[in-house]
Design a protein around this nucleic acid. Structure first.
Lengths: 249, 249
DNA sequence: CTTGACCCTGACGTTGCGTCAGGCTTTAGC
DNA sequence: GCTAAAGCCTGACGCAACGTCAGGGTCAAG
């Protein structure tokens, strides 16, 4: 009759938290969220603690982590809360960067869909590639492999990525400017641009050859599409840079 | 030796387009993308037409449509290209709105994570609820049920939602202002606010009782969470409005 | 004629639950 | 005291969109 303090049955708890009863069963079996208690008949009974835990679960789930990871994270959570926190912040920041890039892409798509009468599937496809590249949450895994977790909490990487993003955009614009002005790829100015380009790549990949390789693969793939280009930077830009870099040695 | 015009084998086609060979198999069996030809040995051979088709597929997939829908859409595509186009535009716009809302939420999250030392899971959970509500792509289905497709192309709904979004924010701010000034819920000013509130809900739901119902459910659910509120509008605001509305009749 | 690189077709695995199915409990009403 | 409506439980299968073998042809090169 009297709810022993505040214990809720499954469906009630589910209604309050917005998840389904089935999901609760699921989390229970996975060991993610064991109800605080069970009634004599075996009914699941959820208490205050379970609210908090569930909140953490849905939060991490939202950030794109699979339930397995969430489990292991929450298990040794208390251990280094600070590191976890830092990761959270970085993940949010990264997420935001991705989203902002997506908006840019969508704006472009809207413009061209408004101006033309036929859907330019190819342009749309380009945009989608760019967005998906950034929505590819592989980097999260990187954050969460045990080894790199340590490495990460060692380094400081706060908003390096965000800054890098802007610098890229600026540099690309400058190169386009140089091209339109007919600057010679062998000139000093071109050399300087190429040097900055190289530095940014170095900066972005952190000297990690795997990241660099996957970047190259990405751009190589796009170059193979039969029809015209709509990449973050055009072939002209990359051609200019590689010419400049070549005439350097 | 000579590629009969330009026919590509599976892995080559896959590399060029960025999808996996397995996915191509999948699309083939689903009848979504049958290769233009087959070699004597039964090898899949993809041609130019297949590029275009695949682009359409990945584009629609990106927009959140399940493969089944994509199939039926592409099958009768030529029929009413204009309607499809309009839908595309609206979907992009809606997508963008959602994303911008997400950015707002993330900014808030970043602020509070920066200021406090503990992760405020509850606040994060609220934010996620809001975002997920808007990422809930159920409305896409709505766009694509046969009946409503007709209805949609009849109406004009371009950026009504976007405008609505801003008006909401403004109205909520005004109500909060009124509360802080101690305005009487029975006063003229409160009445006016309540009236605008009602109008906006009407506007937003388009008189559709289902949408209204799900909205109510959403807010009711949130009200049941044990701990403090972080909703788009606070309990105070909704209390004020309902008082004002009540004292009206 | 043998590699090695591809290709094919099943067929089962995965993620995060949805959706029965079969069978107890608990509660409300008669 | 009994029954019917609600809820709860534990399997177990279903779904989306492929990933990942497994077992077995094909093809160009050496």
């Amino acid at each position: 009759m009297i709810k022993t303090s505040n214990l809720y049955q499954a469906s009630e708890f589910a209604r309050m938290t917005g998840v389904t009863v089935r999901a609760l069963h699921h989390y229970d079996r996975l060991g993610l969220l064991k109800p605080s208690g069970r009634s004599a008949a075996g009914y699941r009974l959820y208490g205050e603690r379970d609210f908090a835990r569930l909140q953490q679960i849905v939060t991490l789930k939202f950030l794109g982590l699979p339930l397995k990871q969430i489990k292991s994270l929450l298990e040794r959570d208390a251990l280094d809360l600070t590191a976890t926190l830092r990761m959270q912040r970085e993940m949010l920041a990264e997420r935001r960067r991705q989203i902002e890039a997506a908006i840019e892409a969508i704006k472009r798509a809207e413009r061209q869909m408004a101006s033309e009468s036929e859907p330019d599937w190819e342009a749309l496809a380009k945009i989608i590639e760019v967005i998906e590249m950034q929505n590819n949450w592989d980097w999260v895994k990187k954050y969460y492999t045990e080894e790199q977790l340590a490495e990460l909490s060692a380094r400081g990487t706060p908003e390096v990525l965000e800054r890098g993003q802007r610098e890229w955009a600026a540099l690309i614009k400058e190169v386009e400017q140089a091209i339109s002005e007919g600057v010679d790829p062998a000139s000093e100015r071109a050399q300087a641009l190429a040097a900055r380009w190289k530095a940014l790549i170095e900066d972005f990949t952190g000297g990690n050859p795997e990241i660099l390789a996957s970047l190259k693969r990405l751009y190589a793939d796009q170059a193979n599409w039969p029809a015209g280009a709509q990449r973050p930077y055009t072939d002209e830009v990359s051609a200019f840079i590689s010419k400049a870099a070549a005439s350097d040695k």
